[in-house]
Design a protein around this nucleic acid. Structure first.
Ligand SMILES: NC(=O)c1ccc[n+]([C@@H]2O[C@H](COP(=O)([O-])OP(=O)(O)OC[C@H]3O[C@@H](n4cnc5c(N)ncnc54)[C@H](O)[C@@H]3O)[C@@H](O)[C@H]2O)c1
Ligand SMILES: NC(=O)c1ccc[n+]([C@@H]2O[C@H](COP(=O)([O-])OP(=O)(O)OC[C@H]3O[C@@H](n4cnc5c(N)ncnc54)[C@H](O)[C@@H]3O)[C@@H](O)[C@H]2O)c1
Lengths: 219, 219
DNA sequence: GTAACGCCGTGACAAGATTCACAGCATCAT
DNA sequence: ATGATGCTGTGAATCTTGTCACGGCGTTAC
């Protein structure tokens, strides 16, 4: 719709967090919220919230803050667009099944429509309520389902070739769980979810925090 | 050790990626690598790699690039420190089991020493080679194992109270898989792994990419 | 009525991250 | 030998991201 091209990735992520919290508030019957309340729930500053909400053309009142229902609608429209989005999962291993369980349980604007795996034992079966297809069927299923986004949970050595297949099948966005950097054309967006790297980061800062406490005492 | 306090979180993440690739190279018998090769493998620029490596006191030669073995050792020392780090997992559900399977398969400097769950059926059992303890045992097990880092994979409504328990038990770093913002003291480092938000981001950019291609034709 | 309050929207500013550009150097080809 | 090559390490420039501060305004208290 708008100039969604130059959107900052960080901002889009935070808008998603705000949306989730607004959804939560809406189901609880809350109908107005201040920027500093959203900030608290999202772990950012109030100024950051207001700045982020500018991109959806914010309409907060200075007395009641933001109207939950109205803001939620705007965020939905901005983030999800008019049409319902379908997603594919490739690699129905132990992680793939966990993701299936998670996504099918949460009814949202994003639904996993199809799963794919190279293992003949899995093809044809319905796992966590989702039909598992053979890899060869991917182009057809993706085209028919209007799938432009995929979750990639295959072993690391397979990830690149499967990513190539995804791009050929018309996929334009990949959430990559394999611990490798994918080489894709520039019009394909890749988001890496790298649990080991996250764990290492946390362990690093948890360790360096030993000294952090000492600094606190010094001051 | 050094001034790890003011380390950028982004940089630490990338150093982890470099380390992983160097480890890979080392097992393949490669013994030197250029910054642009590391850059390709990590999906960043060569200048970024060199800048990042400055924090570990880089020692690249202009002709052979970096010595794989030596650089790996430096990164290990910087990221993992001298001692072996133990980690706990809280919440042995479907995601928790996937994580256990993943981490126990990869032998590394970070090992999941203990799992915890509130479900009496799981307590006492050994799952994926890891003993599952009752929540009440956490302070003792954490203290004895020198555990300062935890993976948190409990349902969203439980996440905050469990995080509080973790902090009380001496945990100083948390990888949070629950889709909520955790409120913790400032000396605790939290890293959110939020699959839904990642998926939404990718879907957003995959969608806006429709227009992106049109722009390409315009120019 | 009006003064005081608290919050939103936003331009200006600061901080942080990345890229640029180049000196310095070891190597290699001729 | 010596010039050409191609890489590292790093200060400076640039680009990005987050924060501040304040005008404007609806609301409330008195
Ligand atoms: N399990 C975790 O918690 C975890 C955590 C972080 C990252 N990862 C990564 O996620 C990926 C999957 O992990 P997992 O534990 O589910 O592994 P897994 O072995 O249980 O599952 C892999 C699945 O991919 C399928 N597969 C293999 N090659 C394929 C191909 N060419 N095309 C289509 N499907 C193919 C296999 O049949 C299997 O079902 C790995 O890259 C792993 O490193 C897993
Ligand atoms: N499954 C996924 O792929 C996925 C993806 C993203 C996020 N998540 C998040 O990860 C978390 C776990 O997901 P899951 O699919 O494994 O759920 P799950 O229900 O399968 O597992 C939850 C586990 O936590 C345990 N638990 C509950 N309350 C507890 C408490 N107070 N203390 C200790 N343990 C407790 C339960 O006994 C259970 O074993 C959820 O917050 C979910 O939103 C899961």
């Amino acid at each position: 719709m708008l100039d969604q091209f130059r959107m900052s990735e960080r901002t889009v992520g935070r808008l998603g967090v705000y949306r989730r919290h607004l959804y939560h508030l809406a189901t609880e019957g809350v109908n107005s919220v201040y920027s500093h309340q959203l900030a608290l729930a999202a772990g950012v500053t109030a100024a950051q919230v207001r700045r982020d909400l500018m991109v959806v053309g914010s309409n907060g009142s200075s007395t009641r803050g933001y109207d939950v229902r109205s803001l939620l609608t705007r965020l939905e429209a901005f983030l999800s667009g008019p049409a319902h989005q379908n997603v594919a999962l490739v690699g129905v291993g132990i992680l793939g099944r966990a993701i299936l369980a998670y996504c099918t349980s949460r009814s949202g604007h994003l639904a996993i429509l199809a799963a794919f795996d190279s293992d003949p034992d899995k093809v044809g079966r319905v796992i966590q309520g989702c039909r598992c297809h053979a890899m060869a069927e991917m182009p057809d299923v993706a085209a028919q389902g209007g799938i432009r986004t995929a979750l990639l949970a295959v072993p690391a050595p397979e990830a690149q070739v499967v990513a190539d297949q995804l791009v050929s099948a018309g996929i334009r966005g990949i959430v990559n769980f394999a611990p490798v950097h994918l080489r894709v054309p520039p019009f394909v967006h890749v988001e890496n979810v790298d649990i080991m790297i996250s764990l290492e980061k946390v362990a690093f800062f948890a360790r360096s925090g030993i000294a952090g406490e000492e600094v606190l005492e010094e001051v």
